[in-house]
């Protein structure tokens, strides 16, 4: 049995807080967007809940960025360009074919690099591209009066609304894939357990 302490306390706290906020935001956001659909929240409740949770998500995102700058967790997000395409291809081929044939994982977690290349790129895209867009467009909804009325001849509110909508759909998509991919560790629960306890355990010689 090989054990690695991969997820520091603050990372796990941030992750689960983020997960909770995501779920609340998806539910309340859908309740605003599709207001009137029977099983959703009541509109007024949804607006207040969505805005409050959105503010908390902003703080949580700032916490994540600060944590990565101040601790060594940030090193997992530094892209190694050498062999990037090969690693991406290997990882994709594993998910497409190898995984059905019990082929060995092309990537082995280590204290230096806990994310495989596909994971790393999607997390980078989510945390440093989609999340800022989502948060900025969310705040722009609230304070649109301070923005120009039109942008490139199109109403700013519309651009803000479409940006917010598109990024939120993409993040829902990310969440679905994320929830599934975490089951592809050594056992279905290996990765989930690691995010709860901080320890990544798998068969093999202890290091």
């Amino acid at each position: 049995m090989r054990s690695l302490y991969l997820y520091a306390g603050w990372v796990r706290l941030w992750h689960w807080l983020n997960a909770l906020l995501f779920l609340i935001l998806i539910l309340s956001g859908a309740s605003m967007h599709y207001a009137g659909t029977p099983w959703l929240l009541d509109f007024e409740t949804a607006v207040t809940l969505h805005n409050t949770t959105g503010i908390l998500l902003t703080l949580s995102w700032i916490g994540f960025v600060a944590g990565n700058l101040l601790t060594d967790n940030g090193r997992h997000y530094r892209i190694r360009f050498r062999g990037l395409l090969d690693r991406l291809f290997e990882q994709s081929r594993y998910y497409a074919f190898g995984i059905f044939q019990d082929a060995p994982h092309p990537f082995h977690v280590s204290a230096e690099m806990k994310l495989n290349t596909l994971q790393q790129l999607s997390y980078l895209g989510v945390m440093y591209l989609l999340m800022p867009l989502l948060l900025l467009s969310g705040w722009s909804f609230l304070f649109s009066v301070y923005l120009p009325e039109t942008l490139f001849g199109v109403g700013t509110v519309w651009i803000v609304a479409m940006t917010h909508l598109t990024t939120s759909y993409l993040l829902v998509l990310f969440l679905l894939v994320h929830l599934y991919i975490i089951t592809t560790g050594e056992t279905v629960l290996t990765n989930l357990r690691a995010m709860v306890t901080g320890w990544h355990r798998e068969r093999g010689e202890p290091q």
């Binding site: 607006v47 909508l165 759909y169």
Partner: peptide
């Protein structure tokens, strides 16, 4: 209070039938 309650949001203002349909399809 504006940030928390944003009373300006109108039901349907963020809807875009094409984008909604496309996104739900992809999801």
């Amino acid at each position: 209070a504006k940030a928390l309650f944003n009373e300006a949001y109108v039901v349907g203002m963020s809807r875009n039938p094409t984008l909604d349909a496309l996104s739900l399809l992809v999801i």
